[in-house]
């Protein structure tokens, strides 16, 4: 169904706004108490099209506390810098919505 893509697009936007608000509060608290230890990790993604990989990398950078450094489109690997060590699900919680919206 084509109309479901619009529904998942709206859901992706809502999830993105929620994650941005949560991460902004988290980074503000870490700025005050100084609990900061930046690490660089590599994250594999299931997205195949370059447009969805670009949207994923842009969403990662837009969230405070995570920052995409490089994107290897062939190997489907993102290099991500996070403010403390985080698991993969915490870095890209909006990946299934992008997959259902664009793949």
């Amino acid at each position: 169904m084509f109309i479901m893509r619009f529904v998942y697009g709206i859901a992706y936007f809502v999830v993105l706004i929620y994650e941005i608000v949560k991460a902004t509060i988290d980074v503000a608290i870490r700025t005050v108490n100084g609990n900061v230890e930046p690490v660089v990790v590599e994250i594999e993604t299931v997205l195949k099209r370059p447009i969805s990989q670009t949207i994923l990398a842009n969403s990662i950078t837009l969230t405070p506390g995570t920052l995409s450094i490089d994107l290897d489109s062939e190997r489907q690997v993102l290099t991500v810098a996070t403010i403390v060590h985080r698991s993969k699900e915490d870095v890209i919680p909006f990946e299934p919505y992008i997959r259902k919206m664009l793949e």
Binding site: T24, T31, V32, G34, V36, P38, P64, L67, A81
Partner: peptide
């Protein structure tokens, strides 16, 4: 808060540039 964060973390922290970019996200 972001101004305080930029001035607070010095160069002795490992990979401090990423921390500064994260704080500028605020």
């Amino acid at each position: 808060l972001s101004a305080i964060g930029i001035l607070r973390f010095k160069d002795d922290l490992d990979r401090v540039l990423y921390a500064r970019i994260h704080i500028l996200g605020l």
